Simulated scan of single mutants.
Amino acid sequence: METPDLTGIRIIHRAMRGDLHRLRALAEDLEAGRQRADPARAAAITRYAEDVCGAIHHHHSREDEIVWPVIERSAGTAVDLADLSDDHSELDPLLERVRVAARAFAGGRAVSELAAALRTLSELIDEHIEEEERRIFPVIEKYVSAADWKTMEKSLKGGGDPRFELAWVDRYASPEEMAHIRRLAGPVLSLLLTLARPSYRRRQRLVFGS
């Protein structure tokens, strides 16, 4: 039996962790005085943190609503998602804490609360994703059909910010993964990436300095 293609979810997981690590390191550098942020940069950092939080919220909400039911129908008693769902219930207050701290920072408050909030969120996301990939990905590959997984992925589209997630794919996909995605998506993906890259790179320079 053909196994589900988990390329997309692996990239999104890597992107969530990677961008939280980058934001956390940036906030800690600002807190320690190793970097500076004028009002324009502080506002850009806040918008970026809010976009990351929005993407994480969208991902875990869609897992609860769409992905978990598909896995449970296919695997039955072979899977228990209760603790991962509990993690999801802890995420929203942490995401809101990051948003509030980021807005306060953009408004002139110290960056220390943002750094602390990002540390807490990053640690939970790291632990959650490592556990999910270790325990649940083998279950998906064993019990969920490739056809059901493809249907599920189609139903996941919409509701998030496709431009932001496209930038994530462009940054965090390996060359082999990107080649695979291009084969599936066709020339439209290359066109979208070409159009999106200049503004994304400008944003990255403003937020992260590189």
Results as ranks from 00 to 15, higher is better:
A104D: 15
R73E: 14
E28Q: 15
R197G: 06
M178T: 07
P198G: 03
A106W: 10
K142S: 14
P162F: 12
R135H: 05
L195Y: 06
A78R: 13
L195K: 13
A75D: 05
V111F: 12
M1C: 06
L189W: 10
S145P: 01
R22E: 12
E28C: 13
S74D: 07
G158D: 07
A115H: 07
D19W: 02
E153Y: 02
H58V: 01
V169D: 06
L81Y: 04
A196Y: 03
P175Q: 05
L124T: 12
E96P: 00
V111R: 10
K150L: 08
A106V: 10
D161I: 04
L114D: 02
D148C: 05
G159T: 11
H60F: 11
R171M: 10
R202E: 12
Q35S: 13
L94H: 02
R163E: 13
M178L: 15
P4E: 07
L114K: 06
I9S: 14
E50S: 10
G33R: 06
R109G: 15
E165C: 07
E65T: 13
A40N: 14
Y172C: 07
L193A: 11
P93N: 05
I12H: 13
L20G: 09
G159M: 08
D19G: 01
A167T: 09
A106L: 15
W149L: 01
E177Y: 06
G186R: 09
A196V: 08
A49D: 00
F164E: 11
I125A: 06
V188P: 03
I129Y: 04
L23H: 13
G33V: 03
S155W: 08
E123N: 11
V207E: 12
H128I: 05
L20Y: 04
K150I: 03
A32F: 08
V139K: 06
K150N: 04
P175N: 07
A147T: 14
I66M: 09
G209N: 07
P93A: 01
V100C: 02
S74L: 08
S155N: 11
R41K: 15
E28L: 14
F208R: 02
L184R: 09
S122G: 15
A78E: 11
L26T: 09
V169H: 08
A110M: 04
D29V: 01
H21A: 14
E141S: 11
A116N: 00
L95F: 00
I140T: 09
V207C: 02
D87K: 04
I56C: 01
E133L: 03
A32W: 06
E50F: 03
W149A: 04
Q204W: 05
E113V: 04
E113Y: 00
L206D: 03
S145R: 05
S210Q: 06
R24P: 00
A42Q: 13
A179N: 09
A42Y: 11
R182I: 05
L114P: 03
G76D: 03
T46P: 02
D38T: 10
A15G: 15
H128M: 01
D86E: 15
V52H: 01
E123R: 08
